[in-house]
Simulated assay, not measured.
Amino acid sequence: MRADELLLAHGLWCEDTVLLCLTGELDLATAPLVDQAVTTALAASPRGLLLDLTGLTFCDGTGLRALNRLAYRVHTAHVPLHVTGLHPNLYRTLDLLKTTSPWLSPAFLY
C-alpha cells in the first residue's frame, strides 16, 4: 500500500491561515507526507497554521517525531500553530513531550 493511501495531508487556505488536515495513519511510511505538507504551507508565508487531527486514526513514535518536527518548523518560521481534534491519548503524550521540546507551546495543545 502506498503512503498516500494511508494518510491524506490536505492543506486549505482560509484567509491568511493554512488549515492542514491529517486523515489516516501517521507512521514511518507516511511521516514524509507531513513534512512535505508543512514545507508547502510555510512556503506561502501564512500568518497562522491550524492543524486538524480529527481524522488521524493512528500515530506511532515516528508520527510523534513528525508532529514534533512540524511544531519546530512552524515555531522557527514565527507562525502561530494551533491544533484541533487531538485524541485524548495523543494529547497526553504531546503534553509530556512539551517539557523536552520547548517549541511545543501550550497553544499547540489547544
Rank of each mutant, 00 (worst) to 15 (best):
L109N: 09
H87T: 13
C59M: 04
L12I: 09
C14G: 05
A29I: 02
L42G: 05
C14M: 13
S105Y: 09
V74S: 05
E15Y: 03
T93K: 00
L64D: 01
T54Q: 10
G48K: 07
Y91K: 11
H75S: 11
C14T: 14
G48S: 14
L26T: 05
H87P: 01
T93D: 01
V18I: 13
N89D: 15
A107H: 12
R65T: 12
L86E: 12
L81P: 07
P106N: 08
L56D: 03
L12E: 15
W103D: 01
T39I: 08
Y72G: 14
A107G: 11
S101Q: 11
C14N: 13
L67K: 06
L7C: 01
P80L: 10
L28I: 04
A66M: 10
V79T: 15
V74I: 14
A66C: 03
H87G: 13
A71Q: 07
G55M: 10
T93N: 02
T76I: 11
T100L: 10
Y72V: 14
T93R: 13
T99C: 07
G48W: 02
P106G: 01
S101C: 14
A31D: 02
D60V: 04
S101E: 13
D52S: 09
D52A: 12
D4N: 11
A77R: 08
T93H: 03
R47N: 13
C21V: 13
L51P: 05
V74L: 08
T100Y: 08
S45F: 07
V38Y: 01
H87V: 03
P102F: 06
L49T: 05
L50Y: 00
L20D: 03
D52W: 02
G55N: 02
L53F: 10
